[in-house]
Design a protein around this nucleic acid. Sequence first.
DNA 1: CTTTAGCACTTAGATAAAGGGAGTGCTAAT
DNA 2: ATTAGCACTCCCTTTATCTAAGTGCTAAAG
Lengths: 354, 354
Amino acid sequence: MELTERKKRILRAIIESYIATAEPVGSKAVAQLAGLDVSSATIRNEMSDLTDMGYLEQPHTSAGRIPSPAGYRLYVNELMGEHQLTMQETQRINDALELKMEELDRVIDKAGKMLSKISDYPVFSMTAVKDVVTVRRYDLLMVEENAFIAVVMTDTSVVKNKIIRIPDQLSDPQLQMLSTILNSSFTGLSRDEMAQVLEKMRAHSAPGAFQLISLVVDFAIQVLGELRKQTVHTAGITQLLEHPEYKSLDKAKPLMRYLSDEDETARLPIPFDSNQNMNILIGPENINEAFRDTSVVMASYDIGDNMRGVIGVVGPTRMDYAKVTARLSYFADSLTRMFGKGELPPALNIEDQE
Amino acid sequence: MELTERKKRILRAIIESYIATAEPVGSKAVAQLAGLDVSSATIRNEMSDLTDMGYLEQPHTSAGRIPSPAGYRLYVNELMGEHQLTMQETQRINDALELKMEELDRVIDKAGKMLSKISDYPVFSMTAVKDVVTVRRYDLLMVEENAFIAVVMTDTSVVKNKIIRIPDQLSDPQLQMLSTILNSSFTGLSRDEMAQVLEKMRAHSAPGAFQLISLVVDFAIQVLGELRKQTVHTAGITQLLEHPEYKSLDKAKPLMRYLSDEDETARLPIPFDSNQNMNILIGPENINEAFRDTSVVMASYDIGDNMRGVIGVVGPTRMDYAKVTARLSYFADSLTRMFGKGELPPALNIEDQE
DNA sequence: CTTTAGCACTTAGATAAAGGGAGTGCTAAT
DNA sequence: ATTAGCACTCCCTTTATCTAAGTGCTAAAG
């Protein structure tokens, strides 16, 4: 049975009022809000219908109505107007994204924090990385007699370095030789392959030389490992407390504990449908128990050509979907642009240290 | 007036009971706990004295007693036994500190998270850095015709790199020349000085060459800026909610908001007395309003020879000082050892990226 | 003089009862 | 089909009562 125009309008008014106030909405209030020139009694009849159809719920007999998950779903799919970002808002997001010289991981972390501030909800963010990253090239820089810097560049153009100390002195030609070996035998390989080659080499190499090689290769393997590992960042968990549905600690605690526990979030089972770049999960649609009364709005963004990340907002089912989606999508687009191919990349930087 | 042995014993019993239960302690309970073979009436008299002396407080006329800040202070200074870390605990801390290949900043962050897990309280951590860091040397590595990696090493042996793209092609001799200029004119200088030299150079240099130089120098200046900036990390804020004094959201919210707001914590006005390496601030001893009902236990640790950091635990005034101090001090010592001069440093790493 | 037992007194917090208010659903009239 | 009117339901707040814990005092005992 199709909804009449008026029913839609009433449903929408109820949802938007509830989003704003977190209070059940009564027929009288709707009569004003919906801008329909009918009395509250008429509205009551309509609301009764909507309840029967499953779009509204009644906390108890004599309370107003609140939207059911199905109601939110309908709202998100059909009713919700595109929220126009104001100039101010876009400006704010742009300012926020003025990140320079940061490492990818930290950019993501920071981006999360900013989005959280902008949206007033907790945010999680993660990057899904290419699973096979290889080393493109090695450079070795002598710094002192018994130390050199190993610079490793991956095929994803990530550069990492490390100061390597050695017991014996090393001459320039030796370093040159080492560099040649590394660049010829240890590039374009996966971590496992590198380990294998290294193992083979152990047999027919001078122990001293082998030692050196393995120091650098071990570092390279570590770098690749670091890059592979997918981390989830969360930000602004405390924001939950600002929303009335979490004013009872019993509600807030499990969710907060979940979000703040890295081990948990690490295996965040977020079913992201990558066909569309904006996903909304409403309340019970979340498989995860902790999220049963909570909605998640997610967007994906691209990091260059090979990687893709997901950033999402967590909030009460009564969340201002229109606003959140607008902001989130703009934000994700900005991230994509920022990490974009054409432009100068965000110049991620590096650091090693003795 | 000096406290009698018995009074001390009673005070100690009260504090420890209150630490454990968060409930006011009555005379009857004390009679048992203190292990004194006297009746509750006697205890009552003593407790009355202790109240007069300011070591105990009464929430209301007919409640048990709770320790006053002065009481905690006395306890911390004199009464508190050294908490013995169990083998298990030290083992746990050691395992936790098995950090490799991380950047300083992230080590601190992670260390905070671990300590928070170990101590069941929120933790903040920060590093106080040398205020003048300079560049020790530059290395330039050609990667493609129109891009090279700039590797900058500071006098604190931090190495950072960045891929720099240039519109025109660059020959090896040109790169060589650039490197010479950088190493002769832009090392050992503060950020301001570098900017000045750069400005002077603008006049009598070919525009193209100047452009190149300034790209690298700007990066170096940024690196120094990054290093200088002192950041405070917080971890485990949610742990607050596990303690009964914060079960009312009104109490928890301001503190949580404070701790989770980076802008706030950045200017955390923590008066750390660097003469002793363990500081305890009890309740009202905290200048900061948000911490009025909260105690802070802080320890400092050394990062190599030049830097020093502070790591601290935040909790209710009723906090298990004995346990927290023991763990914190062991933890801080471990950090110092880990960053120690002798040993291999935690091999901080670096990364740049296109 | 210190310790102890006994008891009246205080007070927070828990439980129960009563009142108010918002909103519904139904009926009858427009 | 819409609306006004009204009885009914149920939550929430306030008020009153009760209970349990703990104190402080007094007077007796060691």
